[in-house]
Simulated assay, not measured.
Amino acid sequence: MSENKYDLCERLEDFAASIILLYDKKPLSYASDYLAKQLIRSSCSSALNYGEVLGVGIDADKINKLRICLKELRESQRNLNIQSKAKLFSNEDLFGLKNENDQLIRIIVTRIKNIN
Protein backbone atom coordinates (compact mmCIF):
# COMPACT_ATOMS: atom_id res chain seq x y z
CA MET A 1 0.00 0.00 0.00
CA SER A 2 0.98 3.65 -0.19
CA GLU A 3 3.89 4.93 1.88
CA ASN A 4 1.89 8.08 2.67
CA LYS A 5 -1.11 6.52 4.39
CA TYR A 6 -2.81 9.88 4.76
CA ASP A 7 -3.16 10.59 1.02
CA LEU A 8 -6.64 9.19 0.39
CA CYS A 9 -6.44 9.48 -3.39
CA GLU A 10 -3.19 7.53 -3.39
CA ARG A 11 -4.59 4.92 -0.98
CA LEU A 12 -7.64 4.31 -3.15
CA GLU A 13 -5.46 3.94 -6.24
CA ASP A 14 -3.09 1.60 -4.37
CA PHE A 15 -6.02 -0.47 -3.14
CA ALA A 16 -7.32 -0.91 -6.69
CA ALA A 17 -3.83 -1.69 -8.01
CA SER A 18 -3.27 -4.29 -5.26
CA ILE A 19 -6.45 -6.07 -6.29
CA ILE A 20 -5.41 -6.04 -9.94
CA LEU A 21 -2.00 -7.47 -9.01
CA LEU A 22 -3.57 -10.19 -6.85
CA TYR A 23 -5.52 -11.56 -9.81
CA ASP A 24 -3.04 -10.78 -12.57
CA LYS A 25 -1.02 -14.00 -12.28
CA LYS A 26 -3.49 -16.40 -10.69
CA PRO A 27 -5.30 -19.03 -12.77
CA LEU A 28 -8.98 -18.50 -12.12
CA SER A 29 -11.96 -20.79 -11.80
CA TYR A 30 -15.34 -19.62 -13.07
CA ALA A 31 -16.32 -18.28 -9.62
CA SER A 32 -13.02 -16.56 -8.91
CA ASP A 33 -12.95 -15.06 -12.42
CA TYR A 34 -16.47 -13.71 -11.98
CA LEU A 35 -15.73 -12.25 -8.55
CA ALA A 36 -12.29 -10.96 -9.60
CA LYS A 37 -13.71 -8.97 -12.50
CA GLN A 38 -16.41 -7.47 -10.31
CA LEU A 39 -13.92 -6.66 -7.53
CA ILE A 40 -11.58 -4.96 -9.99
CA ARG A 41 -14.50 -2.86 -11.28
CA SER A 42 -15.72 -1.82 -7.83
CA SER A 43 -12.28 -1.06 -6.40
CA CYS A 44 -11.25 0.97 -9.46
CA SER A 45 -14.60 2.77 -9.45
CA SER A 46 -14.06 3.94 -5.87
CA ALA A 47 -10.69 5.46 -6.83
CA LEU A 48 -12.02 7.03 -10.02
CA ASN A 49 -15.07 8.54 -8.33
CA TYR A 50 -12.91 9.95 -5.56
CA GLY A 51 -10.88 11.67 -8.25
CA GLU A 52 -14.08 13.42 -9.29
CA VAL A 53 -14.69 14.51 -5.68
CA LEU A 54 -11.46 16.50 -5.84
CA GLY A 55 -12.76 18.60 -8.73
CA VAL A 56 -16.23 19.33 -7.36
CA GLY A 57 -16.96 22.66 -5.68
CA ILE A 58 -20.50 22.16 -4.40
CA ASP A 59 -20.93 20.21 -1.15
CA ALA A 60 -23.99 18.32 -2.41
CA ASP A 61 -22.01 17.08 -5.41
CA LYS A 62 -19.08 16.09 -3.17
CA ILE A 63 -21.40 14.11 -0.91
CA ASN A 64 -22.98 12.38 -3.91
CA LYS A 65 -19.58 11.32 -5.30
CA LEU A 66 -18.38 10.25 -1.84
CA ARG A 67 -21.52 8.12 -1.45
CA ILE A 68 -20.71 6.43 -4.76
CA CYS A 69 -17.17 5.75 -3.47
CA LEU A 70 -18.67 4.33 -0.30
CA LYS A 71 -21.08 2.12 -2.23
CA GLU A 72 -18.26 0.74 -4.36
CA LEU A 73 -16.04 0.12 -1.32
CA ARG A 74 -18.87 -1.71 0.45
CA GLU A 75 -19.36 -3.82 -2.67
CA SER A 76 -15.63 -4.61 -2.61
CA GLN A 77 -15.93 -5.56 1.06
CA ARG A 78 -18.78 -8.01 0.38
CA ASN A 79 -16.86 -9.47 -2.56
CA LEU A 80 -13.73 -10.04 -0.47
CA ASN A 81 -15.85 -11.64 2.26
CA ILE A 82 -17.48 -14.01 -0.23
CA GLN A 83 -14.11 -14.99 -1.66
CA SER A 84 -12.78 -15.60 1.83
CA LYS A 85 -15.79 -17.75 2.80
CA ALA A 86 -15.56 -19.69 -0.46
CA LYS A 87 -11.84 -20.22 0.19
CA LEU A 88 -10.89 -18.82 -3.22
CA PHE A 89 -7.91 -17.25 -1.46
CA SER A 90 -6.42 -17.88 1.95
CA ASN A 91 -7.37 -15.49 4.71
CA GLU A 92 -3.71 -14.43 4.82
CA ASP A 93 -3.84 -13.40 1.14
CA LEU A 94 -6.95 -11.30 1.69
CA PHE A 95 -6.26 -9.95 5.19
CA GLY A 96 -4.38 -6.82 4.09
CA LEU A 97 -6.93 -6.00 1.39
CA LYS A 98 -9.86 -6.50 3.75
CA ASN A 99 -8.18 -4.33 6.38
CA GLU A 100 -7.40 -1.53 3.91
CA ASN A 101 -10.95 -1.75 2.50
CA ASP A 102 -12.38 -1.35 6.01
CA GLN A 103 -10.16 1.64 6.75
CA LEU A 104 -11.10 3.30 3.46
CA ILE A 105 -14.80 2.85 4.23
CA ARG A 106 -14.32 4.48 7.64
CA ILE A 107 -12.44 7.41 6.10
CA ILE A 108 -15.11 8.02 3.43
CA VAL A 109 -17.89 7.85 6.04
CA THR A 110 -16.02 10.41 8.13
CA ARG A 111 -15.53 12.68 5.11
CA ILE A 112 -19.27 12.54 4.38
CA LYS A 113 -20.14 13.34 8.01
CA ASN A 114 -17.69 16.25 8.07
CA ILE A 115 -19.28 17.86 5.00
CA ASN A 116 -22.79 17.74 6.49
Rank of each mutant, 00 (worst) to 15 (best):
S2V: 11
S2N: 11
S2E: 07
N4G: 02
K5H: 08
Y6K: 15
D7Q: 03
R11Q: 06
E13T: 01
D14L: 14
F15V: 06
F15K: 00
F15A: 06
A17R: 09
S18Y: 09
I20L: 10
L21A: 02
L22Y: 10
K25A: 11
K26C: 15
K26H: 09
S29A: 08
S29H: 07
Y30G: 06
S32C: 12
S32I: 05
S32H: 10
D33L: 14
K37V: 07
Q38S: 05
R41L: 15
S42K: 00
S42E: 02
S43H: 00
S46I: 00
A47W: 13
A47L: 08
N49G: 02
Y50H: 12
Y50M: 04
G51R: 02
G55C: 04
G57L: 02
I58Y: 14
D59M: 11
A60I: 12
D61A: 09
K62M: 12
I63R: 09
K65V: 08
L66C: 09
R67V: 06
R67E: 13
I68D: 01
L70Y: 07
L73C: 06
R74H: 08
S76F: 07
S76Y: 02
Q77D: 13
Q77T: 00
N79F: 06
N81M: 11
Q83A: 05
K85D: 07
K85W: 11
A86Y: 09
K87V: 04
L88I: 01
F89Y: 13
S90R: 04
S90E: 10
N91F: 05
N91W: 01
E92F: 09
D93A: 09
D93T: 01
L94W: 12
F95W: 08
G96W: 12
G96N: 13
G96T: 06
L97H: 10
N99S: 11
N101H: 00
D102T: 05
Q103K: 15
L104N: 08
L104Y: 12
R106F: 14
I107E: 01
I108T: 01
I112D: 12
K113R: 08
K113L: 08
N114V: 01
I115F: 01
